[in-house]
Design a protein around this nucleic acid. Structure first.
Length: 545
DNA sequence: AAATCAAGCGCC
DNA sequence: AGGGCGCTTGATTT
């Protein structure tokens, strides 16, 4: 498959190099070039998808596949199976220093410093050589392709946006908070709530947003509170507690998803959060604008499909336990995973007394619980599922010893002591302190292998899904066809014409099965989905497992 | 005054 | 004495 490398040159010029030749074109000639070359399905190679792709999408051009050099370089640099020496050379310090372009603040290209004009062809050759020399080349190739496809999907989702009804959202705000207040003032119902709190606590001047003030007022009212968390407050018996909890809820709605949020993030009936692929260390995406990671239930009613369209909402039931079964090759757990409810499958196999116990045990194993009921369940289930539980246990031990761990496809974790937990000028750690850190790192590596492989499954899922959606009936630009509008860890939302809803449901399901086969091969792991075809995101009932 | 930290909440 | 994130405010530091 042809690789076409795009490098920025000074003065709005682009160096286009494929295997045969290199030539220069004007930046404005890029969309027609891509449109023309897409018929032969090349892989476009560029420094950062978020830098190149939005303007192509704006010009109505969809890219089928790419290689994101920044994302892939970082992956390879941290992959235990890659020789770091092969990643060195010309301009590599600049490549290592590249920061992601933020999709919500489209800076097309910078003011012409060196990092804006890195040679994609040179870096691409380095990365290809590093992969080819790795004993795990096949898995790494899949990982790099999935990571890059994810970057395309992210840009496309930001481009399309989640269909958003400002009317519904504002009605919801007015209902709960009262009419929109003038700038700087609290809405009426929030203020009334604060008044209730002040009156019932006998604290006329109290600012309920100030934790010290609030804590002092609670103390004066004779309550023994050490913090102001909702869970702590709920345990207190006092008439002020109810309005206080209500105040916190309303204040959160007002501040994080109120009118200001609409003004900033919703335009032309679309909410366009900005995704950052591989933004977290495990390979999960993060977000740097709009709050895509916390799409609060409170405002989901405002996500409403266009007329004649629907939202197809799909999420995987118990993704990470299934991934654990697959990566550990634990056939017993894989058997329990057959069917819609893995935890129930464990009960039916006689491994555990109840669903709740099964869940506690598995989550405890993946998070490193050592005590309480969860800790006991981990011990019990380890006997029943030695391979699955042994895998996370081994990852924890390796982390504690300072050894590297990796995901199924080869993403590496940062070594002990280079990250958050050991700043150079910290006071010398005593023995107990270092021991605590080692155990904390062990819990991190324990979770890393599962969360990271789960993220890889999800990448394969959306990569396959975006291709299937593109092949479905439809023509014209991306947003006139069924398309992804939202992705979060184990959940997708597709915006689609109502008449293709069934086909989309089928595509989402088939993509999940395909991702499972891609990662776990002959060990057939089921990835059953909860799929809902709805008008509004809020109507998609969560199974809540 | 600006930058950074921490608490608390939201999501998976 | 359970992992990963982002966002907002008030408090603290520079």
């Amino acid at each position: 498959m042809a690789r076409i490398r795009l490098s920025r040159l000074p003065g709005d010029r682009v160096l286009v190099s494929d295997d045969d030749e290199a030539r220069e074109i004007a930046l404005g000639d890029l969309p027609p070039l891509v449109r023309e070359r897409e018929t032969s399905s090349p892989r476009w190679v560029w420094d950062d998808t978020a830098r190149w792709y939005p303007s192509l999408l704006a010009a109505g051009v969809r890219v089928e596949r790419c290689h994101d050099l920044r994302l892939c370089r970082r992956l390879l640099a941290r992959a235990p199976a890659v020789d770091p020496g092969l990643l060195g050379g010309e301009e590599t310090r600049l490549w290592d220093a590249l920061r992601p372009v933020v999709a919500s603040e489209p800076v097309l290209f910078g003011a012409g410093d060196a990092a804006d004009h890195l040679r994609a062809d040179v870096e691409d050759a380095r990365q290809l050589a590093a992969v080819a020399a790795s004993p795990e080349a096949a898995r790494l190739r899949l990982l790099l392709a999935a990571e890059s496809a994810g970057a395309l999907a992210a840009a496309e989702m930001t481009h399309a946006g989640v269909p958003w009804s400002v009317d519904v959202h504002e009605a919801l705000l007015v209902d709960q908070l009262g009419p929109r207040p003038p700038r700087g003032a609290p809405p009426r119902l929030l203020a009334a709530c604060a008044d209730d709190v002040r009156r019932l606590l006998g604290a006329p001047g109290l600012n309920p947003d100030s934790r010290p003030d609030l804590l002092a007022a609670l103390r004066r009212a004779g309550l023994e509170a050490t913090d102001t968390r909702a869970s702590t407050l709920r345990r207190l018996d006092h008439p002020a507690v109810e309005p206080l909890l209500r105040y916190k809820k309303l204040a959160h709605l007002f501040h994080t998803n109120g009118w200001a949020w609409i003004d900033e993030w919703v335009r032309d009936g679309r909410f366009r959060p900005s995704y950052q692929p591989a933004g977290s260390i495990t390979g999960r995406w993060s977000s740097n604008g709009g709050g895509a990671l916390s799409f609060p239930a409170q405002v989901r009613p405002a996500a409403v499909a266009d007329d004649g369209w629907v939202l197809v909402v799909a999420d995987v039931a118990q993704l990470e336990p299934r991934v654990l079964a697959g990566m550990s090759g634990d056939r017993e757990l894989a058997r329990a995973a057959r069917g819609a409810d893995l935890y129930q499958g464990m009960v039916d196999a006689g491994a555990v007394a109840s669903r709740q116990h099964a869940k506690l045990g598995l989550l405890g194993a993946m998070y490193g619980a050592t005590s309480g009921e969860s800790g006991r369940m981990v011990a019990d289930l380890t006997r029943r599922y030695p391979q699955a539980f042994g895998l996370v246990e081994a990852a924890a031990r390796a982390g504690e010893r300072g050894q590297a761990v990796r995901t199924l496809l080869g993403r590496g974790c940062p070594p002990l002591g280079t990250a958050w937990d050991e700043s150079p000028d910290a006071p010398p750690a005593d023995l107990a302190d270092r021991d605590r850190r080692r155990r904390a790192h062990g819990r991190f590596t324990r979770n890393f292998v599962v969360q990271g492989t789960g993220a890889e499954w999800a990448l394969c899922w959306i990569a396959d899904l975006r291709n299937r959606l593109w092949r479905l009936a439809g023509d014209g630009p991306l947003e006139a066809r069924p398309h992804l509008v939202f992705f979060l860890h184990d959940e997708v939302v597709v915006h689609a014409p109502a008449r293709v809803a069934d086909a989309v449901t089928e595509a989402v399901t088939a993509a999940a099965a395909s991702a499972g086969r891609l990662l776990f091969r002959e060990l057939a792991i089921d990835f059953p989905l909860d799929v809902a075809v709805v008008r509004s995101y809020a109507d998609a009932g969560k199974a809540g497992t």
